[in-house]
Amino acid sequence: MSDKVRQNYTEKQKVNVFEQEFLPHIDSMYNFAYRLTFEEDDAKDLVQETYLKAYRFIDSFEQGTNAKAWLFRILKNSFINDFRKKSKQPSKVDYNEVETYYNSEDVDPTITTDLRVETIQHMIGDEVSNALNALAVDFRTVIILCDLEGFTYEEMAKILDIPIGTVRSRLHRARNLLKDKLKIYASSMGYK
């Protein structure tokens, strides 16, 4: 992910890197894009733009390093710079991240239902997906990167250009928020 060493690939090597290391991630990239934009056409555009940029800047990618994280970082930046501006999504969340770190239990005292493991396990994909989609994009993003894509904290810090401490606090908050959404959902469905 660092650009300290610039590669000097031949055209043939470029195509090789592109096909062997970049294209295999297209499904993950598409799903990430779709979970950011909620629109198939936007997701396609975003992925396409990401791959074109990746090709253009291929010399700053070192063959054999973490292509997936590198691509996700480009996609995330394209989303912020180009897509978020156009869309109606609120882009800023109020972070008091450091202060609320690990002090944010019992976020909403009105939700008294205790969410149970069995309740979660009985939920269907759409229910969980709706809860995730209801989170502000920055919170949704850390959950996607960590829990769905399995990136490490360190990789996430590079993808998002934030310190690891911020990754962890944001992830912690995101999980609490998600839990609240799931709780509200569970009690509205009469789950106990």
Partner: peptide, 10 residues
């Protein structure tokens, strides 16, 4: 999250 969310192929 890991097992139940639908992943769409590109």
């Amino acid at each position: 999250l890991q097992t139940k969310l639908n992943n769409k192929p590109a």
